[in-house]
């Protein structure tokens, strides 16, 4: 038994194609990848909105002046 379809390299490489694990499960694997990608955007956008709202609320004139003067 082998996850890549080969348990020995005693083969003619001209006959060998895909050698990655779990061939036949490409669709579910890509679905997992797409969910990860879209989920990342959602989490990041929410977090950024919260952080910016908090920063706008707590911004102080003194700190802002220091940041501007530091260039």
């Amino acid at each position: 038994m082998s996850t890549i379809g080969y348990s020995s390299w005693a083969v003619d490489l001209a006959d060998v194609g895909a050698i990655y694990p779990f061939q036949g499960y490409e669709v579910p694997m890509v679905i997992v990848g797409v969910v990860f990608w879209l989920g990342w955007h959602v989490i990041q956008a929410r977090r950024e909105s919260e952080e910016l709202a908090e920063a706008a609320k707590t911004a102080s004139a003194e700190r802002t002046k220091a940041a501007i003067e530091r260039y």
């Binding site: 709202a53 920063a55 911004a59």
Partner: peptide, 15 residues
């Protein structure tokens, strides 16, 4: 980004 944050800088937390 909000104007207050733009003036203060976007690295507010890290800075």
């Amino acid at each position: 980004i909000p104007a207050e944050v733009e003036l203060q800088g976007l690295d507010f937390g890290e800075n």
